[in-house]
């Protein structure tokens, strides 16, 4: 695999605030690379340096083989960009936006096709200001993939959208990747990063704190799997002691939570259920809780409120 973006010791300062502090990573061709982090962590600053919209204060960048600050024509012609904060004129219609932006690129794809692919066909003549949040985002995706770019930047694509719109947009993003494009995205939805991204970088206070495949991050940093159930009868003698051999036991009224040691998930559930049946203990609502990226994220970035 070829790396398409190289970031080396990137640094960006606004006044006295260090927005990005010595971040390095590479993005491989054909992958969906995600940056997650709390608000103000430096994700957007990083992505905007890569887009050539901001000038880094230190480090070096290479995007599609060029320095974004120096060779912006190559960059602008071969990347598709969805900005966190951008807009179209209120009275511009959907088809007009696509038609106008098509004229900027030499190899623009047919925008009529994009219109139906993104489900915007019946919004063709709707002015931008009259579109819903999800429709605006779909239009921005359309504008981002219009130039048939090698590389697509998506900055907080689904913020403020309802679950239906979010899922529809996830399908779109996967579809874009399946056409061989590389995607660099930022998000603060861990579920989004876990579902979409091949690799995830966790960024906090302008620093890169973890970088790996979501599953690997969860395995390494997600903590223990847990099995929880409600007791329907009183606890048999020695039951708690037997459970404690499987893992850490917390009892809150009738709710029992067992956090596994280093057991494999299936094993822990099996052991707990076997113990419950052999001791003839009646129970209900047995649930296993897998650690997810959100657990990793909170572990790495803390629970303190930001901003």
């Amino acid at each position: 695999m070829k790396s398409i973006i190289q970031v080396n010791h990137l640094r960006k300062v606004y006044g006295k605030t260090v927005a990005v502090d010595d971040i390095s990573f590479e993005v491989q061709e054909g992958e969906i690379f995600g940056m997650v982090g709390p608000n103000g962590a430096g994700k957007t600053t990083t992505i905007e340096c890569l887009e050539g919209l901001r000038q880094p204060d230190g480090g070096s960048l290479c995007v599609l083989g060029v320095d974004p600050q120096k060779d912006d024509t190559i960059l602008r012609s071969n990347t598709g960009i969805q900005l966190q904060q951008s807009n179209l004129p209120d009275r511009m219609k959907v088809w007009e936006a696509l038609d106008l932006y098509s004229s900027f690129y030499t190899h623009a794809v047919n925008w009529e096709g994009l219109l139906s692919q993104l489900g915007l066909e019946d919004k063709r003549n709707t002015p931008f200001a009259k579109l819903s949040g999800g429709q605006k985002q779909r239009l921005f995706i359309a504008l981002a993939i219009l130039p048939d770019p090698k590389l697509v930047f998506l900055d907080e694509l689904t913020t403020g959208l309802d679950p239906q719109a979010r899922h529809a947009i996830w399908d779109l993003v996967k579809d874009v990747r399946s056409k061989g494009k590389t995607i660099l995205m930022t998000t603060h939805f861990m579920e989004e990063a876990e579902r979409l991204c091949d690799r995830v970088a966790i960024i906090d206070h302008g620093r890169l704190v973890a970088l790996d495949e979501p599953a690997a991050l969860i395995r390494k940093l997600g903590g223990k799997e847990r099995v929880a159930f409600n007791l329907e009868s009183s606890m048999p003698a020695d039951f708690e002691k037997a459970l404690a051999r499987l893992g850490l036991v917390e009892i809150e009224g009738e709710r029992v939570i067992v956090s596994g040691n280093d057991h494999h998930q299936a094993e822990l559930v099996g052991e707990v259920v076997r113990l419950l049946t052999t001791t003839n203990t009646r129970f209900r609502d047995l649930r296993t809780e897998e650690p997810n990226l959100e657990d990793v994220f909170l572990k790495m970035t803390g629970r303190a409120m930001r901003e």
């Binding site: 900005l83 951008s86 807009n87 004129p89």
Partner: peptide
């Protein structure tokens, strides 16, 4: 208004 709304910013990311 085009600057305030980010219309100019979006245009600046294209080769135009």
């Amino acid at each position: 208004s085009n600057r305030e709304n980010g219309v100019l910013r979006r245009l600046r990311t294209t080769p135009v």
